[in-house]
């Protein structure tokens, strides 16, 4: 009797097929988006030659902002481009009747859309940027070296404030580690992957609309809940002008605990959220009808 839940052999073959399809259907988009920085850098350099008699490429800040925009576009668009066809009757029927378990389809989908494609984009983008910086002396620091030094810079810039926060926090450096944000990027992809599987048309717009709506509703529910038990004390502190961002945790022990373990609590909450999203993706694939 074959394993109907998860077979590593079947999964690895299916993942390989999914990767091949991703390369064939989305490879060009990744390459084009990854050369965005190079294109704009060349354009900026040429423009600067006309107006200022010299080649000046983009600086690290502009290149970082451009990278973040391109990365966000990939995170948002890749899931619907790669797996949006599941809601289409023709292609979705072929997907659902393929003899691979729902769990295997889910894991492969999540790996490709939320991990491998964004990672491939980052690698290609950073590699092109590194080559540009090797060739262009006006480039300054490359993105990859900026990522390595960003922690130190942020800590320096926060200066005194960081020192005060360090008094109540454990391991404050962890807060500015880029690794801490990997699960947030995965979360964005997972949200848009779920949207791609739920909505039949205008998948990205509808997902954004839903996220705005859910955020509004959750804020309305969460704010009063969070204020339970601390409302009176907080009002008193605000009235007496005694509340600052740095003494806030001292007055509220639960928040103090969260602040002390901010990196941990953020990772735990993101992991729980990501697992929940993966469960909903699995459930959607399991229950979809065509």
């Amino acid at each position: 009797m074959k394993n109907d839940v998860f077979s590593f052999n079947r999964f690895s073959r299916y993942l390989a097929t999914d990767i091949r399809n991703a390369v064939s259907n989305y490879g060009i988009t990744i390459l084009v988006m990854a050369t965005l920085g190079l294109s704009i850098d060349v354009f900026t350099g040429l423009f600067s030659m006309i107006v200022s008699d010299g080649w000046h490429g983009m600086g690290i800040v502009s290149r970082s902002v451009l990278f973040m925009i391109a990365f966000l576009v990939i995170l948002i668009s890749a899931p619907s481009k790669l797996f949006g066809h599941v809601t289409d009757r023709k292609e979705g029927s072929a997907f659902l009747t393929l003899p691979v378990s729902t769990l295997e389809k889910t894991i492969s989908m999540v790996l490709v859309a939320c991990v491998l494609v964004p990672a491939a984009f980052v690698i290609v983008y950073f590699s092109i940027d590194l080559i540009v910086c090797c060739c262009d002396p006006t480039c300054g620091e490359s993105l990859i070296s900026a990522v390595a030094t960003i922690k130190v810079e942020i800590l320096d810039k926060l200066g005194e404030a960081m020192a005060e926060l360090s008094a109540v926090m454990q391991n404050p450096e962890a807060l500015v580690s880029p690794l801490l944000y990997v699960d947030d990027f995965i979360q964005i992809s997972l949200l848009f992957l779920l949207g791609a599987l739920v909505f039949k048309k205008s998948k990205i717009a509808k997902t954004i609309g839903c996220l705005i709506l859910i955020s509004m509703v959750l804020s309305m529910i969460a704010t009063p809940l969070m204020m339970v038990g601390i409302k009176d004390e907080m009002e008193q502190l605000v009235m007496n002008n005694e509340l600052t961002p740095f003494n806030f945790p001292e007055h509220f022990p639960f928040i103090t605990w969260i602040c002390q373990h901010l990196a941990l609590s953020d990772t735990v909450s993101d992991t729980v959220m990501n697992l929940l999203l993966m469960f909903f993706i699995w459930l959607r694939i399991k229950k979809i009808n065509h």
């Binding site: 074959k2 109907d4 259907n25 023709k90 072929a94 009747t97 691979v100 378990s101």
Partner: peptide, 22 residues
């Protein structure tokens, strides 16, 4: 239930079929 062991014994050919790019 779409169990792989059953699906591997079933094939459904719909009226309209998708056209993969390969």
């Amino acid at each position: 239930d779409r169990q792989p062991s059953l699906l591997s014994n079933i094939y459904y050919l719909p009226d309209e079929v998708p056209a993969p790019r390969r």
